[in-house]
Simulated assay, not measured.
Amino acid sequence: MKDHIALMRPKQYLKNCFVFAPLFFAMPIDHPELLIRSLLAFLVFSITASAVYILNDYGDIETDRLHPKKKFRPLAAGKVSGISALFLSAGLLLTSVAICLAFLNTQVLALILLYLVINVIYTLKLKHISLIDIFIISTGFVIRLFVGSYASGLDLSYSIILMTFLLSLFLAFAKRRDDVLILMETGHKMRKNISGYNLEFIDSAMSMVSSIILVAYIMYTISPEIIAKHHTDKLYLTSVFVILGILRYKQITLINKNSGVPTEILMKDKFIQLSIAFWITSFLLIKYAARWFI
């Protein structure tokens, strides 16, 4: 049972918090039922993501056995059989569909199925094509946003969609950097497409993407639409914590050379945790106590 739970990668559920982004940026405190629907959306996407992780691990058994960390995954280590893993994946997918039909709506179900189809194609073919692979990963984060939006009935701004795509692209590049380092140190290719990346390319891409993220966020906070929506023109102050968070992640990636598992970094690095906590706190304080900052 323990190995089957590990196979579902519950630690990766942290990524699915993007489902709550529409709720956070809209902050409809007078409609608590939207939180319940967002929580259901989070549950549905987490279950679906687990099913996809299992399919991906099933297709990567041989390459994972060569990876210094992934070789300990249940399928690669032989702790869970392939048939058992596939049955678990199918059961998770059926559960996800049932929850959508019973408590959410067909739009969320359609997005869940789209996410599944994209990831099946990714597992079979697209993950072997450099650049396309990380763009597919980033698309998955945007789908998370729309799942939260359709579940809660809250609109998404173009800026949030763009920043989410770029942030996930930044994290994906950092992850590929870790694969390049493993290739340089061991001579083992963790991915067939790794020859399409090198340190110079990834470092320049990360710098470019991180710069665009920061500009996009600042432009978002000072846009007339957002100022009118949140009734304050002081949200730009929160950009300090966004800058700190991104710089810290680049420090971990470029200096510590430890960017293979983004969720582990977010769960263990106190600096990033504090940056996120202060960003959320400052955002809420400025929105609801804007007069303190005038």
Rank of each mutant, 00 (worst) to 15 (best):
Y13A: 04
L14M: 08
K15P: 02
C17M: 15
F20R: 04
A21C: 11
P28S: 01
I29G: 00
H31E: 15
L35P: 12
L39Y: 07
L39K: 10
L39M: 13
A41T: 00
F42A: 07
V44N: 01
S46M: 05
S50A: 08
V52T: 09
D57N: 05
Y58I: 11
E62M: 07
E62W: 03
D64H: 00
P68G: 09
K70R: 07
K71I: 11
F72G: 06
F72V: 08
I83L: 11
I83H: 09
I83C: 08
S84P: 09
L93M: 15
A102T: 14
F103M: 04
L104R: 04
L104E: 02
Q107P: 09
V108E: 03
V108I: 04
L109G: 05
I112G: 06
L113E: 10
L113D: 07
L114R: 05
L126E: 08
L126P: 08
S130R: 05
F135T: 04
G140M: 03
I143W: 09
I143C: 11
I143H: 09
V147C: 00
S157N: 11
I160T: 03
L162G: 04
L162V: 07
L167C: 01
S168C: 12
D178F: 07
D179C: 13
V180K: 03
L181N: 12
L181H: 03
H188M: 15
K192D: 15
N193G: 09
L199C: 13
F201E: 10
D203W: 06
S210H: 05
S210Q: 01
S210P: 05
I212R: 09
V215W: 02
Y217Q: 08
T221G: 00
I222V: 15
S223F: 08
I226K: 03
K234H: 07
V240A: 08
V240H: 06
F241T: 04
I243A: 07
I243D: 04
L244C: 14
L247Q: 13
L254V: 13
N256S: 13
K257S: 09
T263C: 11
L266G: 06
M267C: 08
K268G: 07
K270Y: 15
Q273D: 08
L274D: 15
I276T: 08
S282G: 10
I286E: 02
K287M: 14
Y288I: 09
A289S: 13
I294F: 12
